[in-house]
Amino acid sequence: MSIPLPSVLKGLAALSVGIAAGYQFFSTGTTRKALLRPPGALDEPEFLSHCLRCGKCGLACPYRVIKYDDSLSQGTPYLIAREGPCRLCDDFPCIAACPSAALAPVADKRAVKMGIAVIDRDLCIALQGMRCEVCYRVCPLIDEAISIEYSLRKGDSHHAIFEPVINAEKCVGCGICEERCIISDPVAIYMKPRGS
């Protein structure tokens, strides 16, 4: 038998309100940190009320990097950049698959705003003079979102520092740099999700 559409929508509406309420309840007084959402995600409160927890974005992702299994996210999609960053597919299949526009279409990869990369200056070996800059070379927006600034290494007139510098305006927060960083536990470059 078929389901009358209006009652479905009423049910969804009730659901959304419930979830939004739930989020409000749980976001106060807890140490919950922001999650890295898939590309095109609305701002967090809107995202949470639009997301149906249907799991279709994860199915659509050709790299299978969208996760759901943490109950704290209440079934909403998120990425752990270190394990599986967003590859900024030209056609954004995750966004195309989302039935509720919780992931809204973006003009192109430069319009994505998942978050911003942050470099831990104590851990980054490039800042000590080692020739690394893996993060720089793997960036899909190389020389736009991330560039190299050159300076003389302190106390060494013979060698330069090749410092990777993030452009916060241009960085889309895809997380590829975090995935590839050769420093682990903790990584020297990590995503600060939008909204955190």
């Binding site: 389901i3 049910g11 009730a14 659901l15």
Partner: peptide, 14 residues
Amino acid sequence: NLIYCNFEDETLCD
């Protein structure tokens, strides 16, 4: 209290 319902397998019509 209904919390969640997934009915993607259902056909919608009418």
